[in-house]
């Protein structure tokens, strides 16, 4: 038992070192240009978004489809903190995450009483309200947007990506994470086991919003210009799709699908119509023929182990019938 835990830790540690080393080497030696560095940053941001939503949907079973709202809050507040208040970038990122977590609390408290589709549409509604607030807020430039200095680097993105993954993985594999999973499995039974279901649903939502906010800060400082238009319904859907295509309940699935989809959409970016037509077709086909997503509910580490640790994915009630 003990030896396995340690070896898993080392596998993770070595993987991290290798990924970081390769990235660092490629950038430092000038083997890749800023296009690819940007791509790596975008992948890191999208993974953070995917993993943070995975905690809400995949682990806690709460169908939230307005994650872009918290992404937007992080993006704007990080920009306010650096550009208007002159705070250092890492501090601004963390503060932006906290602001977004507070927003997550405010949104989560009333809406997490709702279930299934109702929760989905409520979170979508909140995300739209958040976007409209930024659209009308002159302090951040309203519809025309605000200029932001580029500060996001591959190193920052990587470090915050790492923190996100560690925190959410550690959370999931603890009694707190199991409490969330039990809510996903059967809320009434979880309640009768002494689990404060409201607390854990809101907690998962707040942690998810925190990291979405940090992702937003990284995003807004990766371009020179910030506009509300980037945080619409489609962005929320994008994040949702990472989580579902990866396999609900699988963190590695979310990471892999966020990476793959970001790569694919970057390579097709000069043909936006074809890209979106293919994207939507792939989405429909996967949902029809492999609705459990890429990884099902398994983690990539399960593939290397003989005995599977049974986690299971959420089983949202069926439609119809």
């Amino acid at each position: 038992m003990k030896t396995m835990k340690i070896s898993r830790f080392w596998i993770f540690f070595i993987t991290v070192l290798i990924v970081y080393g390769i990235g660092e080497f490629l950038i430092a030696t000038g083997r890749i240009d800023s296009f690819y560095e940007n791509l790596m940053i975008t992948i890191a941001i999208n993974i953070i978004l995917a993993v943070s939503l995975h905690l809400v949907i995949g682990i806690t079973g709460q169908l939230s489809i307005g994650h872009a709202g918290f992404f937007a809050i992080g993006a704007y507040f990080a920009a306010i903190f650096t550009m208007n208040m002159g705070l250092p970038f890492p501090v601004a990122l963390i503060l932006a995450g906290i602001v977004s977590a507070i927003a997550g609390f405010i949104v989560g408290m009333p809406s997490l009483r709702l279930r299934g589709d109702y929760l989905a549409i409520a979170t979508l509604g909140f995300a739209e309200i958040i976007r409209i607030i930024f659209l009308n807020w002159e302090y951040v430039g309203g519809a025309s947007g605000m200029t932001v200095t580029k500060m996001t680097t591959w190193q920052y993105s990587f470090i915050f990506l790492l923190i996100t993954i560690i925190v959410i993985a550690n959370f999931t594999n603890s009694r707190h994470g199991r409490a969330c999973i039990s809510i996903r499995e059967d809320e009434i039974a979880a309640d009768s086991m002494g689990i404060n279901t409201t607390y854990y649903k809101v907690l998962a939502f707040v942690i998810g919003s925190l990291f979405a906010g940090i992702a937003g800060g990284l995003y807004s400082h990766n371009f020179y210009f910030l506009q509300p238009v980037n945080f619409g319904v489609l962005k929320s859907f994008d994040i949702l799709i990472y989580v579902v295509l990866g396999g609900l309940g699988s963190m590695s699935g979310a990471i892999i699908s966020a990476t793959l989809l970001t790569l694919v959409s970057t390579y097709f970016q000069n043909f936006p119509e074809i890209r979106m037509v293919l994207y939507s077709l792939v989405l429909i086909i996967i949902m029809l023929y492999r609705p459990q997503g890429l990884m099902g509910s398994k983690e990539i580490t399960d593939l290397f182990r003989r005995k599977k640790s049974v986690k299971g994915g959420p089983h949202y009630e069926n439609i119809g019938t």
Binding site: R175, R178, I181, E185, A190, M193, G194, G312, H315
Partner: peptide, 15 residues
């Protein structure tokens, strides 16, 4: 908790 292991079901009771 249908999709969870037998052990996890009991462990959640210990929460």
């Amino acid at each position: 908790f249908a999709e969870l292991s037998v052990l996890d079901n009991v462990r959640i009771g210990y929460h």
